[in-house]
Amino acid sequence: MTIQFKDESFRGDFSYANSPSNIPRFPFPFPEDEYMYSTNIEPHHAARAGSPFENAFDVDEHYVAEMKDRALVLAEDPGRCQALPHMETAGWDFVELVMVSKARDYPDLFKLTMDGDRWHWINKPLQIDDTFTFGDSSTLPCHPMEYIGRQVQGDHAILDQRDGNLWLDAGIITAQADWSLDFDVGMNFFEWHAPVPLAHELGVFQRALKFLLTLPQGQPSRRLNWTLTVNPRLDTSPENYPKWGPDRMTVTPENIGEKVHLRVELQTFWRLPRSNAILFPIRTYLMAMNEVVTQPKWARRIHRVMRDLRPELVEYKGLSRYHPILVEWLSQFDDGAPTSPGIFPD
C-alpha cells in the first residue's frame, strides 16, 4: 500500500480535503442515532483493514501536511510543547512506542535499526534519517517528546500517575479543540476536565480515571470524541481564538456543506513501560459536511444526532451560531429510513 501524501493547508486558503477513497475510512463517531456522553472506551485492537483502527498509529494522506502545520504552530508559540522536568523518561517511552509501531506497520515508509542503545531511524515521508543513543537526550535535537511528536499525527499528552490520579505533566498540543496546554499543564485528571459540562455529574470522569489507573502495558484502549469546526483548521486553540472565532460568522445555508467540518478525535491510551506514565494521543480527523453526506447512512444519522443534541452540548461545543441552519441543511439527506448499528458506512 502506497499512500499519496497531499500538499494542502489547514489555514489561509484551507486547501485541505479528503480524497474520495479516504472518505469511507473516516472514523465516524456516532454508533447510534442519538448522542450523549459516555466513557465509550474499547480495546485498541486492530480492526477492519483500511480503517483508522487497523494500526497502532494511523498514517493517512494528510500526514506530511499535518506535520508542516505543527511546525508552523510551534514556531509561533513554543508553549504548545511543554514537559515538566520529571517527564523525560516518558518522552523516551513515547519515542520507542511510535518508532517500533510505525516501522512494523508501515515498513515501506519507516525503518528502525537498533544496535543496543544506538538507534537508526528513517522516516521517508518527512525525509528524516537520524542516528541517536536511546535514553540520551543530548543526542537528539530537542526533548524526545518533541522530536517524535513532530513525526506523528495528532496531539500527544503524557500523563504521570501518582497519588491515585493522573497528571497532565507533558504534551505537544498544536491541533486542540479549545484547550490550553500552557494553562492546564500540571493539572490532575479532574482539574483539566473541569470546564466540561454534564459529564462530571454523570460520573464519566470517575469511571474513566478508575479504568485508566489500571491500564496494563500492551493493552491499549481507544475512544472517539467529536465536535464541529468551521473550515478545516487544526489549530483551534484558545490562544488563537480571535483568529478562528470569526469563522463561525461566515456560515450560510449556501456554503455550510463545505465550511462546516465534522472534527473527530481518535483518542488512544497506552501504558508506557519505563515511566509507568500513560501516553494519550488525540488524533484529529476532519471532514466537510459535503463529504460526510456522500455516505447515506452517515447523512441520515448525523442529521438525527444534530437535531436532538442537548442544548448544553450545543453551547459547550460552540455550535450555537450555526446549529439551526446545519440541522435544516442536513434534513434534506434524511429520508427517515432506519440506519444499521455501528459506525462504519453501509
Binding site: V185, G186, E191, A194
Partner: peptide, 9 residues
C-alpha cells in the same frame, strides 16, 4: 473569566 483555575499559575 472561565471557571477554570490553574494552581501552577
Amino acid at each position: 473569566v472561565r471557571d477554570h483555575y490553574s494552581r501552577r499559575l
